[in-house]
């Protein structure tokens, strides 16, 4: 446990201010502690030396704002890249399932043809919309440059990019849901056989992919909101 004193208090303040990124907070705390202890030791190592070291180090929230700009940009870029990758992965899995149906000569039951005629264009439109939104988010993020310090205007730009990714994820969820329903009906209409495992597995993979994307966007949004609190004094 850390001995209490000005340095420990400052490290706690820094950890609170960097709570939007726990891994970064741990790294910064370790670096800052080494710095502050070395500075305090060089000045005598007593409580006064600790206070001087803390004062020379600077305000915790101001420092966190500087970290936030880089950390949130990197996080949002990961989300953008993740959205594009999720789309590519789901597309590949969808194509694999269709190829499997072809290989197995697994046609659609007559009773399902009507539903499929309505659902498939919706599915394609949702997927296309997701792809357009994801590419737009990716391009938008690529054109932004992280400032030295997080400020409200840049916070809004990042929020816009996350919103585009979230919209893409929603459209992707619609597409995966339609695919899941169609696949479920197709499997129910057929006699149970080992070949049914492939479409079931591909649907599970798509759902996992879309779920992971939604989870990471949710986490990024929560972190961005925590970081936004740094801009309010």
């Amino acid at each position: 446990m850390r001995p209490r004193g000005p340095i420990a208090d400052h490290l706690d303040a820094l950890a609170r201010a960097l709570a939007f990124d726990p891994a970064l907070a741990r790294r910064v705390a370790k670096e800052a502690e080494d710095h502050l202890r070395e500075a305090a030791d060089a000045a005598g190592g007593d409580a006064e030396a600790e206070r001087c070291a803390v004062a020379a180090f600077g305000n915790a929230r101001a420092l966190a704002r500087q970290y936030a700009a880089t950390a949130l940009t990197a996080q949002t870029r990961r989300i953008g890249a993740g959205t594009v990758l999720a789309l590519a992965g789901i597309f590949a899995v969808m194509e694999a399932r269709v190829a499997w149906y072809g290989l197995m000569q697994w046609g659609l039951a007559d009773a399902l043809k009507g539903m499929s005629a309505v659902a498939l264009p919706l599915d394609r439109a949702a997927f296309l919309l997701a792809a357009v939104l994801a590419i737009a988010a990716f391009v938008y993020l690529g054109s932004r440059r992280a400032p030295r310090e997080l400020h409200p205007a840049y916070g809004k730009e990042l929020a816009r990019a996350v919103a585009l990714c979230a919209a893409a994820a929603c459209a992707l969820l619609v597409s995966v849901a339609i695919e899941s329903v169609l696949t479920a009906f197709r499997l129910l209409a057929a006699a149970p056989c080992p070949a049914a495992l492939v479409p079931a597995a591909t649907i599970a993979a798509e759902a996992a992919c879309a779920g992971a994307l939604v989870w990471s966007i949710g986490r990024a949004s929560r972190r961005a909101m925590q970081a936004a609190a740094l801009m309010r004094n």
């Binding site: 910064v28 710095h35 600077g58 500087q66 990197a74």
Partner: peptide, 15 residues
């Protein structure tokens, strides 16, 4: 400058 300022700069340059 405030000594802590150098750390976000180091982090940014590393990124």
């Amino acid at each position: 400058l405030p000594e802590g300022t150098v750390y976000p700069a180091l982090h940014r340059l590393e990124q």
